[in-house]
Design a protein around this nucleic acid. Sequence first.
DNA 1: CACCCTCCGTGGACGCGATCGACCGGAGCC
DNA 2: GGCTCCGGTCGATCGCGTCCACGGAGGGTG
Lengths: 152, 152
Amino acid sequence: MDAIDRSLVELLRGNARLSYAELARQVGLSAPAVHERVGKLESSGVIRAYRAEVEPEAIGLGVTALIGIVEDSGGDTDDVLETFRQMPEIESCYFMAGVESFLLKARVGTIAELEQLIVRLSRTPGVASTRTGIALSTKWENRPQPIEPPAS
Amino acid sequence: MDAIDRSLVELLRGNARLSYAELARQVGLSAPAVHERVGKLESSGVIRAYRAEVEPEAIGLGVTALIGIVEDSGGDTDDVLETFRQMPEIESCYFMAGVESFLLKARVGTIAELEQLIVRLSRTPGVASTRTGIALSTKWENRPQPIEPPAS
DNA sequence: CACCCTCCGTGGACGCGATCGACCGGAGCC
DNA sequence: GGCTCCGGTCGATCGCGTCCACGGAGGGTG
């Protein structure tokens, strides 16, 4: 993970479809060298995936909600997690410090679907209560932040 | 936005680096046709960007926090937003219904940096109070959900 | 100091993919 | 029926991805 690797990661975070040849020009190496470096970044887990970022409204997911979950004292956290994992509406799931064990980001098409989702969450064994906030608008999301070299 | 477009979007959400030729095979069109469709999806804003998804720890951003912001009654929301936008640590920013006007997702390297960020947020004109939750672990994030055809 | 090993890069070669232009067929409209 | 437009295929060309052989720098060892 040297300076060139960081440049590559930063370039690919900005545009995942850059060709190896283009990356090579940007970092001043040959295309095969870049190919190998990127391959290592992928297989070492630094780069997890390449994703197209889509306007949610365009695919019928106009409603974004953030849902805090308080667990039952008796519940099994892993079971709860597994149940959440089965719900495709839940785009992100964080295990949090604090009263609310989980914070979920969910996306659905309509408020009615959100209601159904909340009902399903509330009924999930191990879930004591939920608290839902609705995003009126997304100002920005997953903005890549510049990589700073390790403070050595 | 027909069924083929939806397939293309779904394929690219799963792997943004698929070649046009591969996409073409998957959807049963020729490569130039796919090229044109994807170009239209990009320029119409359905596809906003292609990003590499990176393990945050690998680039020195091991601390994830979710921060709710309560606005001052006198403050100007746009100014507050602009200030947030200048802070690279804030990866996502939602304008919310409820007492907390904003919910921010921030990523920093250390708890000390998080502390500094919260101080800066608290001092921002227009911000009345902040409430920070720390993510102990990210179970998953930005998981693409299958696209369902418009309910027609 | 010479030697060797390893790592990481370059350059060349070759096949495939990206991309452009020409053409074509069906839908909608005079 | 014939025009036009839209959106596709086909074919050709050029650049890119990817494999391979080679080479130089750096470090350990006799």
